[in-house]
Design a protein around this nucleic acid. Structure first.
Lengths: 186, 186
DNA sequence: TTCCTTTCTTAACAAATGTTATTTTTTGGT
DNA sequence: ACCAAAAAATAACATTTGTTAAGAAAGGAA
């Protein structure tokens, strides 16, 4: 719980606020490959990863894709669904044994209303996510897959350690066989 | 100015707030291909497009890419630079004669501090942008370029009308010659 | 209009990626 | 250690995309 509170402590929040945040987050454990959230439902939780890794992806007609991987000490949610209460088109899955702290939408709304610092946290989280997202688009449209792989090796080596070939390939927008080729030494 | 105020009116803002917003936005005109903002500087303005089209892109070693195109009645800024006062790696350019309302970072900060509705607007803008960004990533990694082109024709035909072949191709992550092939009837 | 520049198209060939199928390796459970 | 299942590597071939270069079309300016 410490890491989670450290993050919220960056915002102006009294001790009472912090302890209330503690109360409203709930510890949860997921096995490897377990579905944390299924697509087709309203996403009712925001997750903070204490230990482990979660991926968020889509179940499409012919394939399953991995849009993002979240690691330890990161927050994760199906944003459109969690914020706007739309049905989520995305699922969340653990790629290894994972423990998270999760908070329900209702509880989170209470915190946002009660403590301005929580709203500020949200703002910062959205802006950071947006910037990362934009950078990813830039990478996807400007780099060939070999360069993109190098990029990941240098900047996000955890992606390579924690995602299997299928997930990582779809994350990169290619087929597993192509990723295998890229990895093969010349 | 009406459209701009319509958007802010969706948030709880008194008449005085709305008229102050009016004052702090400044009308600006850009010619076709004119640079609205150069990369390498701190982006000091947020833009609202009254008429015309802006693209935001990167000047990379060997090429120039178009990451996003913003159309009429849309807001646009180099987010990382505008919010965090980092040096922008991106430029903004008009793809046709374009009039915008722009507001400086300092003026915008004043509005945010003074009127909670402006902060709410920000929050909504960031969330919407993030959701669109995530969807774009999903499309980029899951669709081949023919499908992606169809997707644009159906959902964002303005992209095809307003961007030239070079910009649209880089937006799609391919070369202009490949886009030409995709467009050619079988 | 004419001329010039830019943009777009086309084609031939090279390189990368997708497809299909099979083999090898790894993993997890007994 | 053994076996079965899953994951990854490999290969042959098809398709797509990149590259290079040339020519056609479109758009502006005088």
């Amino acid at each position: 719980m410490k890491k989670l509170l450290d993050i919220f402590s960056q915002f102006i929040l009294c001790d009472q606020a912090l302890s209330e945040i503690c109360c409203r987050f709930e510890l949860k454990y997921y096995q490897k490959n377990e579905l944390v959230q299924k697509e087709g439902f309203v996403a009712n939780f925001l997750y903070f990863i204490d230990k482990g890794t979660l991926i968020i992806g889509n179940e499409l007609e012919h394939k399953t894709i991995t849009r993002y991987m979240a690691k330890e000490n990161e927050f994760l949610a199906c944003i459109d669904s969690f914020i706007n209460r739309n049905i989520s088109k995305e699922f969340i899955q653990a790629t290894e044994p994972t423990t998270v702290y999760r908070i329900s939408k209702d509880d989170f709304d209470v915190l946002v209303k009660k403590y301005p610092g929580v709203g500020e946290f949200c703002q910062k989280y959205f802006v950071e996510s947006l910037i990362k997202c934009q950078q990813r688009i830039t990478d996807l449209i400007s780099l060939d897959s070999k360069s993109y792989y190098k990029n990941i090796v240098e900047n996000n080596p955890e992606y390579i350690q924690k995602m299997n070939q299928y997930n990582l390939a779809s994350f990169m927008g290619i087929k597993p066989e192509s990723l295998s080729r890229i990895r093969k030494p010349d």
